[in-house]
Design a protein around this nucleic acid. Structure first.
Lengths: 220, 220
DNA sequence: ATTACTAGGAATCGAGTAG
DNA sequence: TCTACTCGATTCCTAGTAA
């Protein structure tokens, strides 16, 4: 279905809305009018676009979900096309979470993959860093950095989504990984960090301390 | 078929080559092993990848054609996701072409569309500008600027591909359009420019003169 | 272990056409 | 004109296997 979304971008849907008929779209995509119509219906059902039918054509607009979809694809291609950024440093403040992140991350389904793909068994607990506002733009660049993919899984009761691990250095000293969920673009101002050791102890950190997170241009 | 190429990027084909089995690819893409195999065969037939089979898996590498394909898609998404660049100025030297560009551009199939979409009937002749080497990086940014699409057509004998028109200002004074062919990423150091009037005359230009081409952040 | 062929079932497409 | 339904044609997928 992404193919159709891409076609719409070629037709200019990203700037506000675009008016066209299913026939125009069909011609531009090299398909029949019927197929164009059906594809628009599907995109609407998926919640990626909204449509507004008028007597002579329809006005198409991307939903937030649709924009997110495009952005994700863009970031993926960016890694392939652009040379990787030299360095990326994020700065934030240490705080204690509710242990929720740590709970997920230490599910055996994830833990086995960490051991295999990152080469270490994470210390049972995560370092939570709340980024300063001025680092929000850099936060988006994080997605363009290389990463290690951890597959999702399910354990009978519920399912756990795929996550990404970015290789980082904490305060210029300790090797660690920022772990981000692929679903839920929620709480993007917070970084959850895992490491082979207890970072609070090793670096003498306590809540409220400044933490520098340097992201490596290589995933391993 | 782009869908598959995209999948390969997610698996990391862009950095050199990647080793995996059709089974791994199938699992990652949520299809059968047979489909993964078939898709790789198709991509190879299309000349987008090269494959190197080994006893336990295959090594995949993008061809130049494959990289171009990805870059084109990337540029399209870039226009949708990134805010448009503020300004873009290219500088080059005026020279006389063989009139080949002018020949194509004045085919009725193109001319009618110029009149309709750009709002003027181009002067019969193009301004050819050879860009200085230091403007090559900016030249690639041109593709991220908004443009007007001119459709391809055929006139019995041969077919004429679609082209793009970027709105520009020549030497800060004269409104014009850079015209680029979508096929053939050939001769990218040369800009072909059309305008409603004779630019050489209007601006008092002769071969070898410096020409400044300012690209507008709006297509019209 | 691989990859990839064949065959038949599933999904998608487009001509005709209704609303 | 539009969009979108039905339904036969076509394409695409996967299970079973060969190599």
């Amino acid at each position: 279905m992404f193919h159709t979304l891409f076609k719409l971008v070629e037709m200019g849907v990203h700037n506000g809305h675009v008016m066209f008929t299913t026939n125009q779209m069909a011609k531009s995509a090299g398909t029949s009018q019927q197929t164009a119509s059906r594809r628009l219906i599907e995109l609407e059902k998926l919640g990626l676009i909204t449509r507004l039918r008028t007597p002579d054509g329809e006005s198409i607009r991307l939903t937030e979900e649709g924009k997110r979809e495009l952005k994700t694809a863009y970031m993926t291609l960016k890694r392939a096309v652009e040379p990787p950024p030299k360095e990326l440093v994020l700065e934030g403040e240490l705080f204690s979470g509710l242990g929720e992140g740590a709970y997920y991350i230490h599910q055996p389904g994830y833990r086995e993959q960490f051991k295999k793909k990152l080469g270490y068994d994470p210390f049972p607990g995560t370092l939570n860093v709340r980024l300063g506002k001025r680092f929000f733009p850099e936060r988006t660049l994080l997605e363009a950095m290389p990463f290690t993919s951890i597959d999702g899984f399910r354990d009978g009761k519920r399912s756990y989504g795929p996550v990404r691990c970015y290789r980082v250095l904490i305060n210029g000293k300790a090797r660690a990984n920022v772990v981000t969920a692929l679903r839920s673009h929620y709480g993007e101002e917070i970084l959850e960090i895992i490491a082979p050791v207890n970072l609070r102890e090793k670096l003498g950190l306590k809540d409220g301390d400044r933490v520098f997170v340097r992201v490596s241009p290589s995933s391993q």
